[in-house]
Computed example of a mutant assay.
Amino acid sequence: MVRTAVAFSPGHISGYFKRVEGSEPGSTGSVGAGVVIDEGVRSTVVPAAATSIRVVRPGRASVGSPPVEYALDRLGVTAHVTTECRLPIGAGFGLSAAALLSTLTAANYLFGLGLSADEVAARAHEAEVFHRTGLGDVAASQAGGVVCRMGPGIHADITRFYPEEPLYAMSLGPLPTASVLSSPDAMERIAAAYPDRCPRDLADFCRLSRGFAEKSGLIAPEVQQVLRACDAASVPASMTMLGNGVFAAGVPAEGVLSGFGEVYRLNVARRGAYLIEMKP
C-alpha cells in the first residue's frame, strides 16, 4: 500500500549573522540571532520510482529543488515531494531550510528510517551548506523562539526566548543567498558588522539587526526607504537576512509596512519541524 507523509517546518528570519568555516558541513555554519516564525513549509511526500519536487506558492508553482533532491539522495530514498508555502521564496524567511526539514521529517517516518530529530536536522544542514542556501536556518528552526546561536551547526549552544508580540514582514523581491555567501568581500563586511552579543528582547533584536544591516552594506535603496518610514513612526525594524525585505515589531508596524506592499503577520513559533499526518 502506498502511503503519504505530511510534515511542517517553521521558517526563520535571520537578523544578523557571521559565517563560521569548518572542516566539513557539520562544523560549518554561522553564529547570530533570528526569529523562528509560525509560517513555513508544508511537505507532502509519497514514495516514487524517481524523485521529483513540486514547489507550490501563492499564484504559481515550479518544479525542482536541488537541496531537497540532494538530501533525499543522500538518504537513499526516492519520492514525489510537494512543498507548499505562503511566504515568498528567496526573501529571507528561511524557506529553503524549512523545505528540507519538513521533507526529511516526512521521509523519515514514511520510509521508516529511524533517524532522530538531530540526525534529520544534520542532513538538512548539510544540504543547505553544500548548496549555499543558508548557514544557520536549520539550527534555529529545530525549535521555536527568538534564537541566538553561539556556534556553527546544529549542536551549538542556542538560547531561545518566546515573546508574545507579533512580528510583521514584507518583501520587495528575492535576494539570491548563494551570491552573497560566495562573495569574500560581502563576508568580510558582514564579519566586521557583527554585533557579537545576544538580544535581550524583541525590540533589542531589531536594534542589533538594524545596526548590522547598516554596517554590512547589504541594504538596497528600496529597503532603506521602508526602514526610514519605520524610523519616522518609531517602529523597530530591520532587513531580512538574506532577503530584499523588512521585518518590524509591534502592532503599529503593520500600518507602516502596508504602504510598501503585502504585509505578513507572523508570530514567534513555539516548536520546530513535526509530522502532521501519515495517510494511505
Rank of each mutant, 00 (worst) to 15 (best):
P58A: 12
G11K: 11
V235N: 12
G15A: 13
L175A: 14
S43V: 03
L181W: 05
R149T: 02
T4K: 13
Y70M: 15
T240E: 11
A143F: 09
F212A: 03
I13K: 08
L113R: 05
E126W: 09
M241K: 03
E277Q: 10
P152C: 06
V31A: 09
F17T: 04
D185T: 09
D204N: 12
S23M: 14
S9P: 05
P58V: 08
D201C: 08
A99E: 00
F247N: 01
D204T: 01
L242I: 15
G11E: 04
V146D: 06
A79V: 09
G134Q: 06
Y109H: 13
A143V: 01
I219E: 10
I190L: 13
R265W: 01
A192H: 09
G173M: 07
E188W: 04
G153C: 07
R207S: 13
A49H: 09
V2E: 13
T44M: 07
A233N: 06
S27A: 14
A237K: 13
G136D: 10
K279Q: 09
E84Q: 14
L100H: 00
G250H: 11
R189P: 00
V31R: 15
G15Q: 05
A61L: 07
R207P: 00
D231E: 14
V138S: 09
F111I: 03
D137Q: 08
V147M: 08
S23V: 14
G40H: 10
A156D: 09
F161A: 06
L227A: 08
E69M: 13
E21C: 06
A49T: 14
G255F: 04
S9E: 08
D73V: 02
L202P: 00
L227D: 03
A269Y: 05
R210D: 01
M150K: 13
E21D: 15
N108K: 06
E165Y: 02
S96R: 10
A106W: 02
G26V: 01
T240C: 11
A139N: 03
I190A: 14
A140M: 09
V81I: 07
L110K: 08
G261Y: 12
L100I: 04
L227M: 07
T105Q: 05
T159L: 13
S182F: 02
V55W: 03
E39W: 01
A156N: 10
G211A: 15
E128P: 00
Y109D: 10
G15V: 02
N244L: 13
L87P: 02
A5R: 12
V56T: 09
V35Y: 02
Y162Q: 08
P163K: 03
S141N: 05
S65D: 15
L266Y: 08
I154E: 07
G211N: 12
A79D: 06
P252V: 11
L95Y: 12
R42E: 14
E21F: 05
Y194G: 04
A232L: 14
